[in-house]
Amino acid sequence: MIALRMLLIAGGIWLAWHGISLLLHDDPADLKSIAFWFVGGILVHDALFAPLCAAAGVGARRLLPRSWWAPVACGAVCTVVLAVLAVPVIGRRNAVPDNPSVLDRNYAAGLVVALAVVWILVALVLLQPLLRLDRLKRFAALRRKP
């Protein structure tokens, strides 16, 4: 266990050193941009996103039955990740008319389909106990009939 921990620590230190050494070769304008996005990302997360997630979690815990908490939380996390990943391509800002292979799909429709799949799966997980109970009732009724 200690050897594994030491290996993980050494790997982390090596990856940090490698990342810093790559940054040292960038010009100052790129370093300023990296620092801006790094600090901005932390501030947006801590000042906006984390409190909103905490408030949504508290509200959902008050409104939803206990057995729904985990599937709905999983669906919410998937929704946020898919939405954040889709932000750069939804507006098709960088689409190039001369090159149809750049942003060549309807990404908004793809996002809607992906979110529909996520929430259908959440609904199936939530309905699973009801479907299992119904199956058990039918089985019990069949066993009672002579």
Rank of each mutant, 00 (worst) to 15 (best):
M1G: 15
I2S: 06
L4Y: 00
R5G: 00
R5L: 12
M6W: 05
M6V: 07
L8D: 01
L8E: 00
I9N: 00
I9F: 04
L15V: 07
A16C: 05
W17S: 00
I20P: 00
S21Q: 02
L22H: 04
L23C: 10
L24G: 04
D26H: 05
D27K: 13
P28N: 05
A29F: 03
A29V: 06
L31G: 01
K32M: 13
K32P: 00
I34D: 15
I34K: 14
F36R: 12
F38T: 13
V39A: 13
V39N: 01
G40L: 07
G41S: 06
I42M: 09
L43K: 07
L43S: 04
L43W: 04
L43V: 08
A47E: 01
L48V: 14
L48S: 03
L48C: 07
P51W: 08
P51A: 11
L52S: 14
A56Q: 06
A56C: 08
A56R: 03
G59P: 11
A60K: 07
R62Q: 15
L63A: 15
L63F: 11
L63S: 12
L63W: 14
P65V: 08
P65F: 06
S67T: 15
A70L: 15
A73M: 08
A73H: 03
C74W: 09
A76R: 04
V77F: 15
V77Y: 11
V77E: 08
T79G: 13
V80D: 01
L82S: 10
A83N: 03
L85W: 12
A86P: 11
A86F: 12
V87L: 11
V87M: 10
V87I: 15
P88Q: 15
V89S: 14
I90R: 14
R92V: 01
R92C: 00
N94Q: 11
A95T: 07
V96P: 01
P97N: 07
N99V: 08
P100A: 13
S101H: 13
S101W: 15
V102M: 14
V102N: 12
V102R: 15
V102D: 06
L103N: 10
L103W: 08
R105L: 11
N106P: 05
N106R: 09
Y107W: 09
A108K: 01
G110E: 15
G110F: 02
L111Y: 10
V113T: 11
V113E: 07
V113Y: 10
V113L: 14
A116E: 02
V117H: 07
V118W: 08
W119N: 08
V122A: 04
A123L: 12
L124S: 10
V125Y: 00
L126A: 03
L127C: 02
P129T: 04
L131N: 02
R132E: 06
L133D: 05
R138P: 03
R138G: 09
R138Q: 14
F139I: 06
A140M: 02
A140P: 03
A141H: 09
R143E: 14
R143K: 14
R144V: 05
R144I: 02
K145A: 15
K145P: 01
K145R: 15
K145S: 14
P146V: 02
P146N: 09
